[in-house]
């Protein structure tokens, strides 16, 4: 089956010997292009660890991660960096914006890292800001924005390289229900209109229900992997 990202018997253990703590155990899953998947579970269940492994920010202790049907362990550091830069978008609960810098500069950071020229950066930056309806805020400092606007800047930053996959870690966790809804709608619209694969780690049952598939994690184990 064709997949953008998949795992085979992935385990992740922190520490050694007596103190060893197993965050993930034997997780196998496959996510198809254009899918929307919610990773649901209590705090400490291992859902963030799973997302980090899927996003190639972390390496599993055992098992294999497949990216576009290719074993991720065969990629070197540079290739992983390029892959994350070009193919993945990240949206965080804490935003991780540079508050003292302008909205536009925050949005084009992935392009700067990817060595894209100044002119193209500006064009593409304005385009994605338009997509999240924040173009008039381009020159404002990120710190002056409201929570909902900040999260939309985050989404714009995630979108700037036309990613295949967006990883969102509690994207509405810091927002009130109304602005949360706006951000939620934006993410699902991208999924629907541009076919971007969504992988959302969330507590929120509403968001989870809007995803095509829910992956429930309890104590590091996937409980319903067959459920599509």
């Amino acid at each position: 089956m064709n997949s953008v990202v998949a795992t085979k018997n992935v385990s992740k253990t922190y520490g050694k010997g007596e103190a060893a703590f197993s965050a993930l155990e034997n997780v196998s899953l496959s996510i198809a292009p254009g899918e929307s998947v919610a990773v649901v579970g209590k705090s400490g269940s291992g859902k963030s660890t799973l997302m980090h492994i899927l996003a190639l920010l972390d390496k599993p202790t055992n098992g294999t991660v497949l990216v576009d049907n290719q074993d991720a362990s065969s990629l070197n550091g540079r290739q992983l960096d390029v892959l994350r830069n070009k193919r993945y978008g990240f949206v965080f609960q804490q935003f991780f914006l540079n508050e003292k810098d302008t909205v536009l500069n925050n949005v084009i950071l992935p392009l700067k890292i990817g060595r894209v020229g100044r002119k193209e950066r500006l064009e593409r930056g304005m385009k994605v800001l338009k997509a999240v309806e924040l173009e008039e805020k381009a020159t404002s400092r990120a710190g002056t924005l409201s929570g909902g606007q900040k999260q939309r800047v985050c989404i714009a930053r995630a979108l700037i390289n036309n990613p295949g996959v967006i990883f969102a870690d509690e994207p509405t966790g810091n927002l009130d229900s109304h602005t949360g809804k706006t951000v939620e709608d934006l993410l699902f619209r991208l999924n629907k209109e541009q076919g971007i694969t969504l992988i959302i780690v969330t507590h929120d049952p509403d968001i989870a229900q809007r995803c095509k598939r829910q992956l429930h994690i309890i104590d590091g184990r996937l409980t319903n992997k067959g459920n599509i």
Partner: peptide, 16 residues
Amino acid sequence: TKEIGLMKALGMSPRR
């Protein structure tokens, strides 16, 4: 720390 982490997550190499 956060900023460095973000830049790394977004694909900036340790060398850079």
